[in-house]
Nucleic acid binder design. Sequence first.
RNA 1: GCCGAUGUAGCUCAGUUGGCCAGAGCAGCUGAUUUGUAAUCUGCAGGUCGGGGGUUCGAAUCCCUUCAUCGGCUCCA
Length: 645
Amino acid sequence: MIKITFPDGSIREYNKGINSLEIAEQISPRLAREVYSATVNGEVWDLSRPIDNDATLKLNKWEDEEGKHAFWHSSAHLMAEALEALYPGMKFGIGPAIEQGFYYDVDPGEAVITESDLPAIENKMKELASKNEVYSRRSVSKKEALDLFTKKGDEYKTELISELTDGTITLYTQGNFTDLCRGPHLPSTEPMKAIKLISVAGAYWRGNEKRKMLTRIYGITFPKQKLLDEYLVFLEEAKKRDHRKIGRELELFTFSPKVGMGLPLWMPKGADIRQNLINFLTGVLRKRGYKIVATPHIGNVNLYKTSGHFEKYGADSFQPISTPQEGEQFMLKPMNCPHHCEIYNATPHSYKDLPLRMAEFGTVYRYEQSGELHGLTRVRSFTQDDAHLYCRPDQLREEFKGIIDLILYIFRILNFNDFTAQVSLRDPNNKQKYIGSDENWERAEQDIIQAAAEKGLQTTVVTGEAAFYGPKLDFMVKDAIGRKWQLGTIQVDYNLPERFDLVYNGSDNQKHRPVMIHRTIFGSMERFVAVLIENTIGKFPLWLAPEKAVILPISEKFNDYALKVLEILNNSDICTLIDERSEKIGKKIRDNELKRIPYLLIIGEKEVENGTIAVRKQGEGDKGSMKVEEFVSFINSEINKEIAL
RNA sequence: GCCGAUGUAGCUCAGUUGGCCAGAGCAGCUGAUUUGUAAUCUGCAGGUCGGGGGUUCGAAUCCCUUCAUCGGCUCCA
């Protein structure tokens, strides 16, 4: 007998060699139907794998990540089986489960798979799934595995196997398809009731652009058709939140091929939102001891040679601008830090002056690859809410924590609750990608980890994601369809202070090297507004809205009074419009509701008589009448509530 | 940059296998209407069918090329 400990702490005894599915069946047949994988002693297992010793056991259902993961991973194998049946000789790369579904990278040889082929593959999957094929696990020797896939001619699998250690290799088979796989998988294809292939895309083998591009097929499966239908509705809804669509509808920004791709043009309303953000943040920064600076959009190429950016990115940047002067070259600035360093160098500094917090809403230009451009989230010209903090080494951690505070404060005001924080460290196996001494890297990485820990920030640590000059802490927010975008970032840099020979006088009257922190909160105005649009579906908080209210006279008879109200509101700094068209009130309400103007002010006979306005809140409806002065103070108090935290 | 898809009026879309001067709704402009909480009616205007080249008696439709966009990959100071 063996003892099995469940998550609630209860312990039951079973015969040695029992498997998780049998345990689930003994608890309840219904549970057995809903469970997809088991976590045994902290390791995710197949349900059918026998348990031979005392263990802790968690049964994973659809609601558990481990359950979904096994479900989708098994689905990837099912898709591979279908592909092999439809395209004999197809070679297979890898086919993992992902956050939303799964994919498989395949090499179809001469054949080309396009989206029009997906329904046929989908149908084949359904056909195979309905056979209730069993997934069986088998441990094999490295030689056996190599022989099998060499015989099959699958060079991607043999490459993978050659890197594995003998004795750890397992194969999974369902139906006619056998794959190299660590597992775990469902007991059978039976639960896969709803199957949808989403898209095809190219993907480099092993993520290396020097290697062959395989065809990646994305799909998703569910245990119930209803869940799939709901997912498809979610995708449709998400499309409506796309900032590119809303940006066009609300006339916030545009692009022009004549201006150039990836170069956003802010239209009046979008520019208002952007400016409101800038004004607000500027006020907050001044209170926190930041100094605002301004620097040019170009810099001599030597500036970037000094900073090291030219060597690293020069070839992939907008190329230098020449002048009539022989040999003189300028670059569009790709970042503000070198300029800021020269501001630092313009005056002598004492240890008493530090930290120096230098901020600029600085527009920068980066030659992003054409295929990378994406609405406002990835552009070639953008304005960073940039700042550089120069401090003594002993001040670093406190400054770092202060920035974490500031970012959390701004995110709170904007209701960005769903963010993740990522600590990005260098890849210790690939040190030539980075500049700076080991010692400084160690110190900087420790400072970040410590500061985040002291602020109680939940972080994930990723190696190999650091900037080339230092480690960083990034704040990521998701867009409408779940793509993650980096907004705020805090980066420690011991490197630029050396390259620019930044110094301060210490209490010992010796020259010392300051530490530098790069940081943004919004990341860039462009990306931030994009994410804000997708989070709010274009219904911006009142303080950010470009227009706060629109006056809707019921007929032209009331235009005189309406114009008077308009003047009062605009004079009170409440940006207000008037809709003077000779349309019915219902039509005016509809049109202005769709423009997401926060308040609709309806004026008819009653309002003229009483000297009031009828207030309707966008998305909510009639709020009753009030005097114009009351409305002014109401709006101001609403705005104060939004930005007071 | 790479793989695949898409490109018809400001927006959303029709345009059968190549064949009458390329259509609709919304938006815009006219005129009528003067309206009480999500669409009043009339008329008009608007397109070198992304650009260029080709096949054909004839191309929005077929082929080539180029640009842009979309979904991914790579990249992201």
